[in-house]
Amino acid sequence: MLMNRSKGDRVFDLLNGAFFLVVLAIVLYPLYFIVIASISDPGKVNTGAVWFWPIDMTLEGYRKIFEHEALWNGYRNSVLYTLVGTAINVGLLMTGGYALSRKDVPGRNIITLLIVFTMFFQGGIIPTYLIVRDLGMLNTIWALVIPNAVSVYHLIVVRTYFETTIPLEMLEASKVDGCNNTRFFLRIVLPLSLPIIAVMVLFSAVVHWNSYFSALIYLRDESMYPLQMVLREILVRNSAQELMNVEDMAAQQDFSELIKYGVVIVSSLPVLILYPFVQRYFIKGVMIGSIKG
């Protein structure tokens, strides 16, 4: 069949492949550069000598990073916040999305409209802060995971997934066999929803892992700072100098840049490790959940 393709089709395929190889290189090169820059001599990086291969490889930047106690504490906090927050997100998204997908729920369209309304009109930071304060959640984990427990967009995607994947006839058949709503949801709906669950786990985990703004507003105890707040202290406030004992200012600046590249790698690793485990469900869940809404 490939032999029957015209010369124009083969030329198009060749140009198309070359184009996407160029796009792939443009996307991947910044990530690759961060990796090689984090293990190269910082002086060579700052002078522009490093662009494709690491030069005078060194792990000094990573050694300094991992000697910083606040980073390890931030790692532990971020893992905790991500696990708890993702569990709450996925639990509410699955139950809420399923409820809104059921056509026998009275007023579901009105409820959906009110939920979607919050995507466009919100109370703002100050009213939200006052509510969090009055509920006694300041400087606690709950201030980071409760206010953003449900993403409206994700809820609509999950609802659409259930509408297109779980037919009403399946529920009716299960009721004939004596299955109630709770058992149907736990025993039938959830096992059939692994693709969308995997997608929501990944989306929610990435949001919680990268979040720092909520911690900046609601946390006062530095021992509770997530990893991103610790990195913010290093990158924005130039606290990287606290990790070093270097007299020469030029060398100090070089090591500061080296550490900046290193913390990008350190903070990205958990997400890069998580993605392969959910990748096979990822595309299927996104496509099915976005077909109609």
Rank of each mutant, 00 (worst) to 15 (best):
A205D: 00
V145A: 02
V116Q: 12
S214N: 13
H208S: 08
S38W: 01
S267T: 08
P276C: 11
I273D: 09
L93R: 02
S204E: 01
M229I: 13
L243W: 01
I259V: 14
P54S: 06
T165N: 12
P167L: 13
R63N: 14
L202H: 04
F12D: 04
Y153G: 10
L219C: 04
K44W: 07
S214P: 14
T95Y: 03
G178M: 07
L216C: 12
A149N: 02
L135K: 14
F185T: 04
G124R: 07
Q252V: 07
Y129A: 09
M244A: 02
E172H: 08
T164I: 07
F277D: 11
G178Y: 03
G85S: 07
R5G: 09
F255P: 00
A173P: 11
L272N: 14
G124S: 13
T58R: 12
G96W: 01
D104W: 09
F117S: 15
T128D: 12
G74D: 02
N148K: 10
D254A: 14
M170S: 10
I188M: 11
N16C: 12
N245I: 09
R237W: 11
E60F: 03
A215G: 04
Y218L: 10
L21S: 14
Y81I: 12
A143Y: 06
S290W: 10
V271Q: 06
P147Q: 02
V246E: 03
F121E: 10
N16Y: 13
P30S: 10
V157I: 15
L258G: 01
K292D: 06
P30K: 05
A37T: 00
K175Q: 10
Y32D: 04
V266L: 15
F282V: 04
A149K: 00
P127C: 04
L171I: 08
F282E: 02
T140L: 05
F185W: 08
I141M: 09
S174W: 02
L24Y: 11
V201F: 05
V286D: 12
L83K: 15
N89Q: 05
A37D: 00
Y275N: 03
V23K: 04
A240Q: 04
L258W: 02
Y129R: 13
F255D: 01
G293V: 07
G85F: 00
G43R: 09
G107P: 09
L135T: 15
G107F: 08
E242V: 10
M200C: 12
S193I: 01
T164Q: 09
N238E: 15
Y62N: 02
W51Y: 12
T160I: 01
